[in-house]
């Protein structure tokens, strides 16, 4: 597995990164939460942002998506500067967010939730393929969105951004609060999505889970990326990582 990962990374290194974040700063009101985030994501990669609670991982995703209103620095997506854009325009470039709180709409049934995000470009998964990946959702497509179990809601939150043609998925703690067997399922899903060619930025606290799916890991601390650890070097760096995460 590490062979193919190295191989695909070498291939990807040839082109410019799909996402390039440089000196990204962000604020919630007066509170300065991002102090210069730097990282790259290449096409087809799965990279993580690891770090303690409050380190700035979620804020980084929100800043990339344009939801964090006050932000500066550089976020290039496919070479396009997005730092001054509205979230809806950033979404239209091909970036999609699966938020930490999942954001399933209570007044919509499962199918309505799934079909809500508009198709922005070619290349999204078909609904059949999505139901293939998440058979539970098909069974429960007439249920109210928030009547699903936590795991199913998480599946739905991921599923609905796969139809749209977005190529870069920002997944915010998809395993949070879920049973181990569901976490495993989500791990399989992320690998399947990588195989489909999606590029993924994964925010995680569950570092074992992160290790099992990602090519590279970025350690975020106090609003900065303080280290980058390639997936295959993770074992060698485990003590360092534990020190960062304080576990």
């Amino acid at each position: 597995m590490s062979d193919t990962a190295t191989h695909s990374r070498k291939d990807a290194t040839a082109g410019a990164p799909l996402l390039e974040v440089r000196g990204l700063e962000g604020w919630y009101g007066e509170s300065h939460v991002l102090h210069g985030i730097d990282f790259d994501v290449r096409e087809g990669e799965v990279v993580t942002l690891l770090g303690r609670n409050g380190a700035g991982k979620t804020s980084t995703l929100l800043a990339i998506m344009g939801i964090l209103e006050k932000r500066k620095g550089t976020v290039l997506y496919g070479g396009t500067e997005t730092i001054g854009m509205q979230p809806r325009h950033i979404a239209r470039l091909g970036i999609a967010l699966c938020p930490e709180e999942r954001g399933i709409f209570a007044s919509l049934n499962v199918e309505e939730n799934l079909m809500l995000p508009p198709r922005i470009q070619e290349g999204g998964l078909s609904v059949e393929r999505i139901y293939d990946l998440f058979p539970n959702l098909k069974e429960r497509r007439r249920s109210q969105g928030t009547k699903l179990s936590g795991g199913e809601q998480q599946m739905l939150a991921i599923a609905r951004i796969l139809r749209t043609g977005a190529r870069l998925l920002l997944l915010d703690e998809p395993t949070e609060g879920l049973a181990p067997v569901i976490v495993q399922q989500i791990g399989h899903t992320i690998k399947a999505l990588k195989a489909e060619g999606f590029t993924i930025v994964l925010v995680e606290q569950n570092f074992r889970f992160a290790a099992s799916v990602a090519d590279r890991h970025h350690v975020v601390d106090q609003g900065r990326v303080v280290d980058m650890i390639p997936g295959e070097d993770l074992e060698a760096n485990i003590d360092k990582l534990h020190a960062y995460l304080g576990v």
Partner: peptide, 20 residues
């Protein structure tokens, strides 16, 4: 469905590319 969703969470609906 867009209207109901935007009533619940306009920010997320905007982040899906909809002009809220």
């Amino acid at each position: 469905a867009y209207l109901r969703a935007a009533t619940e969470n306009p920010v997320l609906v905007g982040a899906f590319g909809i002009n809220v």
